[in-house]
Design a binder for these strands. Sequence first.
DNA 1: CTTTTTTTGGTGTCATCGCTCCATAAATCC
DNA 2: GGATTTATGGAGCGATGACACCAAAAAAAG
Lengths: 207, 207
Amino acid sequence: MTPKKDPSGRRGRGRPQSFDRKEALCAAMRLFWDRGYEGTSFDDLISVMKISASSFYNAFGSKEALYHEVIETYMSVAGGWFLDILGEDADTRTVFEDLTRAAAVEFTRPNQPAGCMISVAATQCSPNQHRLRDLLASQRTQAEGAMAARLQQGLEVGDLPIDTDIEALAAFYGSLLRGMAVQARDGASQERLMEIARFGMNAWPKA
Amino acid sequence: MTPKKDPSGRRGRGRPQSFDRKEALCAAMRLFWDRGYEGTSFDDLISVMKISASSFYNAFGSKEALYHEVIETYMSVAGGWFLDILGEDADTRTVFEDLTRAAAVEFTRPNQPAGCMISVAATQCSPNQHRLRDLLASQRTQAEGAMAARLQQGLEVGDLPIDTDIEALAAFYGSLLRGMAVQARDGASQERLMEIARFGMNAWPKA
DNA sequence: CTTTTTTTGGTGTCATCGCTCCATAAATCC
DNA sequence: GGATTTATGGAGCGATGACACCAAAAAAAG
């Protein structure tokens, strides 16, 4: 699958790959991001990745395997801001304000598809794609879990009223972010998303 | 297409349809609702509708025409609660509280697919389905417009601070409802959605 | 150079998708 | 009953989807 590299860094033998794997992966990510899994055809993929069918299977295994890899890439690159902000050393309210505002920015970046690749993916799909649907749903659950963990931490240091329902509050901000992702895909501007984010912060629990 | 009925109610001539058109439409709606447009295959459709391919084309024209009809059906039947509540004669805040709470109930009804058929549809799709994507996006925009109209009305009677940004507030509740729809599809319970709705109402503008 | 290993381009395959055609069945109208 | 009109069942079609195969090409290893 992956080109085998000597621990010393020297290439192994055999014909070298004629394309940059990361670049191809990134091109595939943008396509999947824009069109979803089922909406992206094999031919479109190898076209934007600029490789042939055989190179595709040689390098990535299958369409589904590529999609998995793309999700990992998305989480670590395009979605990295999410966990970064949750890890910020700041007041809990500030963290969530940054989070929602960052979403407004990230969801409307030019030169990349609008919205979040994970939030809106595979919510409706055919039964033979249920594995993927479950994978995406679990990614969303994980993201919400990360928010819940940060809120819990905030509760423990007194940033939140002690009777705050952490899970529910995380679900609220999860919902808001997913809704913002849909709005972004429908063409909402960054300013509009910012206003939504601001209203979202009005819901922050008061002591 | 549609079976021609005499104004007097008597059937015209020709062999009568052997199936109930509304029932078939409803079955198609549930399938589209669950799987989306591209995720629903022709064979699956005629299977749950219990009709043959020829009857299908005779009665509905094409898969896309059926989808359009299904959307209309959804808006008037399954989504009727939405406009009903917006039309309620009540305090504006109460209307939106009812709206978000009703969403929690409607999105988790047993015996029907979870979430909203419109909110999560065609957010990611192939380029040859852009007509449908635009249609769905415009339905979402219309729904938000209806909320904005109700808010404007509320502003005029003093239910809202005069400096309230109506469009933005409508966008906020639009986002929240769409996010709740995704949550519902991922399996969130009615109680969980209720909690989200409650937090959503905490964002209601204060004088 | 020869051998070995790996990638590449091109062509082919098999299933599925949405759709069409046609002969037949079942009703009404005269 | 015969003519007309509409619906049905079933077979099949062209396009596209994802993928497989294979001979040729390009590199390292001996």
